[in-house]
Design a protein around this nucleic acid. Sequence first.
DNA 1: TTGTACGCGTTATCAT
DNA 2: ATGATAACGCGTACAA
Lengths: 355, 355
Amino acid sequence: MKSKITITEIAQKSGVSVSTVSRVLNNSPSVSQKKRERIQQIIDEYNYTPSVFARGMINQTTKNIGVLLPDITNPYFASLFLEIESFALKNMYATLMFNTMFSRDSKRFDTHFTEEDYFKIILEKQVDGVLILGGQIDKEDIPASFILALNQLHQHVPVVIVGSRIEGCECLFVERNLKQGVTSIVHHFIALGHNKIGFIGGEPGIRITSSRIEAFSQAMSSLRQTVYAPYIVTSDYYAPDGYAAMTQLLDANPDNLPSALIAHNDMVALGAVRALKDRGLHCPEQIAIASCDQFPLSEYSIPRLTSMDQHNEYLGRMAVLQLISAINGSDETITINHSPELVVRESCGATFKSR
Amino acid sequence: MKSKITITEIAQKSGVSVSTVSRVLNNSPSVSQKKRERIQQIIDEYNYTPSVFARGMINQTTKNIGVLLPDITNPYFASLFLEIESFALKNMYATLMFNTMFSRDSKRFDTHFTEEDYFKIILEKQVDGVLILGGQIDKEDIPASFILALNQLHQHVPVVIVGSRIEGCECLFVERNLKQGVTSIVHHFIALGHNKIGFIGGEPGIRITSSRIEAFSQAMSSLRQTVYAPYIVTSDYYAPDGYAAMTQLLDANPDNLPSALIAHNDMVALGAVRALKDRGLHCPEQIAIASCDQFPLSEYSIPRLTSMDQHNEYLGRMAVLQLISAINGSDETITINHSPELVVRESCGATFKSR
DNA sequence: TTGTACGCGTTATCAT
DNA sequence: ATGATAACGCGTACAA
């Protein structure tokens, strides 16, 4: 391995002192044009870059941020992360990613760190900021110890959480409006003439799940519709979970099926459609389905999925912006103002149905 | 921001010298049991962790690796990366990820770095090793300048490429058998009585595409079957590309459709199935489809996709292992020996068809 | 405008 | 078994 050239050597080769080289590196104005040019040329020639270690010893900064998420394999996190990574890099920050596998079948993983373990690792990595995207923070009742750990982490490095604000947690938050999407779908279904509407998917005990179910109930009752409890079946976020939820729902209501279902996301919807089909039922004919979170495949499934575009790109950008401003010492909260958008395709039955 | 406690302070609080503390940190044997315990206790109490900067100044090591991939949103890379990240962390390496967006519609991204730019960034990040997963390295003819850049990078830090060996490139490689999967599918189709078989998807000019098409032709002719050129339509790796490829194929051969198609991966297959359906055709009835690369949704699509399980988990592990061994100065090549596995589901028509 | 010298936190070398 | 100290590469206060 070729070892890196140092500022001292550059100084020698240019016949100046290290401070002068340092000055051109940090473009201080007080360097003569001539010297600046010659030094820069040598820097380029030898492809010199300052040691991050030596720099870090002085500024205490790595220009790295840490991103903690449950599972990059989940398209929601993947699209969010892609945006985060590329936007962060544009701002000169590279991204360390950690999959906590929280709330995911983790049999494949022999060693299993807790999220607190990850906090420790991240701290040791001396990142300049931390982004947390789901996991324990989404739980209904978060252990006090976890909030404590979160606060401790935040005392050492700015932490931005993408999710609902947590009582007693001092970290910064970037929230998205979870209810609006569900409400749009309910209105859409009602407009299509449905009144036996249910909700499937999402992990029980997780705030994103309960707040969507709550929004569902609210929207229904504001339209003078009743919610029939057996039409609400939670499970988890993946296709197998949509399959399981739908199966359970069908088994529990054999003679009284709902006519429309709201799925937690597109994977759940896909699993549900599959379960329907395996029973000889069809979507949207027998049961219409719309999902709260659109993933890239929704335009190509059979049927095409009607879903909410949550504009995750925007969310990712905001999170990075918030984090960077916190790193730079600002404590102002960036309020994000995005509207999820209903994309009507086939699975809701709108295109050929008008009861 | 609370600043970190240093080894000097730990030494003072324990009433020993920094060297002794350093010794227990690096568990050198020459520390008395008593002192060791007391020091360790203070370390724990104050939650001390050594500064990565100061450490790095001495060992020149960050315990970070860099992973360069085109697009984490692609399930193939996501599943591979998940394995890489978690396996690396088990070995005490954290992972910096960079999405190059090579070969992907990148309109959304205003700034666009080239892969060489990423090399520079990675080098500046002072990672201990680099993993490259696709991108330019998969191209048919790689610009000499790119290979040069690759070699230069490899002179500074070990580089492991997950992909086919490149002429003139000194980096390490972890290869997977690209042909075996295609061959299995061809045999399967032939066994089912098909003889009008085609191939769709994959980007032209990319080695993984051409080698699969080559394997397709070889397998066909070894079974005394002819390959009909218009049945081969390349495009790209995503669902829209499968849709486009299928559309093009249908348009070009209206009166002479293939009876079976090999898709580059599950997304392509999904898009193709969709295109079929939009023409009022069905899979597998009119055209059977099997894909070379299985993604998580294949079990839940309609129809369920017959595809090759490439065991990406294993591939990811091997890549990390190879990289770590290179970091530790070993130059032995780890040969990987995995067999892709045909998972028969519905889209190939095997379950109800026997011509 | 330029150079000298110190300090950042750790490990390694050399004494003791 | 333990301690003192040099060295790592850089930024910066200060001197010139």
